[in-house]
Design a protein around this nucleic acid. Sequence first.
DNA 1: GCCGTTTTCGGCCCGACTGTTTTCAGTCG
Length: 553
Amino acid sequence: MPSNAEAAGIFRGIADLLDVMGEQFKPEAYRRAARSIDSLTEDRAAFAARGELRSIPGVGDAIEEKLKEYLATGKIGYYDRLQKEVPAGVAEMLRIPGLGPKTARRFWVELGIEGPAELLSALDAGRLVGVKGFGEKKIAQIRAAVDASRTTAPGARMPIEEAYPIAQALARGLREGAGAERVEVAGSFRRGRETVGDLDILVTSDDPTRAFDVFSALPEVKEVRLRGGTKETVLLQNGLQVDLRVVEPASFGAALVYFTGSKDHNVQIRSLAKDRGLRVNEYGVLRGEERIAGRTEEEVYTALGLAWIPPELREARGEVEAAARGPLPPLVGESDLRGDLHVHLPPDADASTVDRLVTVGRDRGLSYLGVVVGGVDSRGVPFSLSESARQRMRAASTAKLRLFSVQEIDLPWMVARSPDPAGADWYVLRPTSRSPTPPPSAPVLERVALLAHRAGSGSSSDESLPAWAALARSAGASVEVGPGSERLDSNGARQAREAGLSLAVPTGVAERANSPTGPVALQFVRRAGALPVEVRNADGHAPFSGGRKGGRG
DNA sequence: GCCGTTTTCGGCCCGACTGTTTTCAGTCG
């Protein structure tokens, strides 16, 4: 079955080839369609079946025809024809940073260079020397970029939970060292995308040079790529690229909107502004030369006649139209969380671990915690919380913060042995590698609060999800959303939500203070558009709290 | 190639940065 990602990939390939051929607007049109198809939560085929391909933003007559052709034959003739016109290597040269379609075309047409390898030998042979527009620096720059692109995978994206501590450290370094009043990490990081390609950091400072100096000297930074009056680009030790921009306070909101994106969201609000005789850029909303908004994001959206839109929703999926109609319903937020259904303590947890958990839980304003007291670990080995920790759970559970015991069950294990009914207040079902999809006759237990379902590795269509959804529904269980291999990503969460399932968010309450789990999980459910009422641990009641006393071990 | 509460044709975001330039082209985000 051809996937959305494959179709999007072909359209990107078409865009690259058209770029090299010197087309003006078609490449962007194909890329826009590709982005749109990539972000679909429903398989494209389902749209085709209902004749709704045209409802996908960026898909018109021509691209609809090509999608239909792809669905029917698995190929797109137009792409095949283009590939015959342009050598594959010419489009490959676009992957080299700093080398765009104009240059690739010139190399190909004027110098007969048909790919990165030939480019390298041309450089070695000195064939670029004396060519108009190619000075000494430019040639050195191209060589460095070609060399770098052979060793590092271009376009590699980093999981957001991996980027999170790095972003926190950079922001902290800027706050402490550069005296920046406001520091905000924008880009896809702020939108809570599963992966980030780079980081965009915005700061306010009246001394940009000092901010750049401080930033370049942070231990995470490997080298400075470029530095101008308002912007610096660096490469981190781990290969991640980070852009730092210094903006004045009167423009901070506009810059935040601009650099948070997404690209398609920005395009949409710009065209909206144009309709109203306004202009939006990273400095503000302008009527003629007069800046009418820019200090805060709210100001910017209001000036455009829009309600403020949470960053997680800024993907040009209808959020602009909704914000034009009025305020958006508030998405689930940190302050809505009442408890955690699924808290893991470390293997050596004792009474003092429980005490620390209680302190953090109280500080976070939570009113219940379901602590895992036993189950099977990822290797299939049974584990059990120590007796001293269990005793402290019973003692420390209060009306204000109740502690519940949770038993984890993985599916084959559950089929083989029924769990001790007295052992837990509720259960968490965990799939294992041995049970990718539940059997139709999977037994249904009582008091299953949570299904920790493996995410479809970031793909937008997860074929096993319907089976898991059916199991969750029949068990009355919620599905866990968040980073990691046993939780749904935001696409999965959106699908689950559209299927009417309730969601659950880990709080990261038992993890170290700057752990990404809680904040990233919250971003994922928000990207799925979840309201507090759709999130089980945000609805004010502990699951099954009426029937049993907490703290049984 | 897409799109439209002014348009079915004529637009298509726009500013920063770099390098090779004497006023700009290319790339990037």
